[in-house]
Design a protein around this nucleic acid. Sequence first.
DNA 1: GCGTGCCTACCCCAAAAGATAGAGGCCGCC
DNA 2: GGCGGCCTCTATCTTTTGGGGTAGGCACGC
Lengths: 213, 213
Amino acid sequence: MAAVVEAARKIRVVLADDHPVVRNGLAAMVDQQADMEVVGEAGDGDEAIALYRRYQPDVMVLDLRMPRRDGVAVVQQVMETNPKARLLIMTTYDGDEDIFRCLSQGAKGYLLKDAPRQEILSAIRAVNEDRSYTSSTIAAKALQRMVKPSLTQRELDVLQQVALGRSNKDIARRLNITEGTAKTHVKSILTKLDAISRTEAVAVAHKRGMIHL
Amino acid sequence: MAAVVEAARKIRVVLADDHPVVRNGLAAMVDQQADMEVVGEAGDGDEAIALYRRYQPDVMVLDLRMPRRDGVAVVQQVMETNPKARLLIMTTYDGDEDIFRCLSQGAKGYLLKDAPRQEILSAIRAVNEDRSYTSSTIAAKALQRMVKPSLTQRELDVLQQVALGRSNKDIARRLNITEGTAKTHVKSILTKLDAISRTEAVAVAHKRGMIHL
DNA sequence: GCGTGCCTACCCCAAAAGATAGAGGCCGCC
DNA sequence: GGCGGCCTCTATCTTTTGGGGTAGGCACGC
């Protein structure tokens, strides 16, 4: 057999996704490439962190929604111990607010799961070279987001309660504020989300990935 | 080269899923098996129907959520022209109400996307032999569902409107009924879903996959 | 120091929502 | 034919929502 010739070291990749099928598909795609190889596969957030530590891969591809610890938490954790980590976020949903949380915490790129094969591969290469990769869909969303006012933490707390169907009085009790204050928050939520009713606010917030029902 | 020995004809499979990664992963898994092969891949509902017609596969694996035409519609369409079709539904979400719509329309089996490799393969084999395959998670849900009262069509119409944040008056206008009637429907929705407010009803309905936000 | 944004809290008031208790028409099933 | 489920509509009453404005305390940045 001829000697294996490698111009350069391969890009070492760790995959993290809770769906075996998706991991399988990604692994197959990556391993078919001459310039990259899969060195580890994780099925949840905790595993992802462990595998990153163990293999110190060039790139880790992360699903945003995973059991035990979601993508946001993994990015946070990994970047803390390894600020130079190159992480590529992958998710099913565009418009997910968590994307921005990941990116602002240092994730290098973002991909939609319905991206074609080639886009996925070039995203991995881009991230490996420390270039950031952002799918055009997301770039557009990011711009939209700059314009639209974002909710404060407290408002997100209240919104979360609203989404559970709680009344203002209930929300006030749980957050240790008066009903009047709860109403104030709800009002500003409605204004910012451009919604007429709390129910519509929940729909809008869910669509924008600000809350997960 | 030795002659290829085949004890029996391979199971001919068509895959339908809008995520290239998932299709890739499934295809790799299937083609690795000695007793099955992928004869077609579809990226949306319309394609799925077209490919079924063209290849008349033994089994078609269908994602429930797809662009252009979702799994329910595909099952409906295919079963109509080909009552003996063997369809295996695959989805990300347990608790999706649409599952039951598919099964009652003749889909042979149901799988969660996070199912392990082996389960997926044996589901395909089961469906091919005209046995039905139901993941245990779903069997449990089905039982729960028997107990809980389901909404009438009209109530689902109203619920859909409620989920959009519309007021009773709005809903009444759009459905050509009086506000009082709209309220009556909302009331019975709240009762059946065991919710205190319309907002909670939306949350519950969404969790049960009765509506998609 | 001064503005700005956030959280808190209060007021009033009109509108909507929800709870309750009816009732008639229609359709399918036993 | 009778019964039950569904859709429609009515009326009344209480509670909750949402819109309007105002304002003090606090932290942060310029």
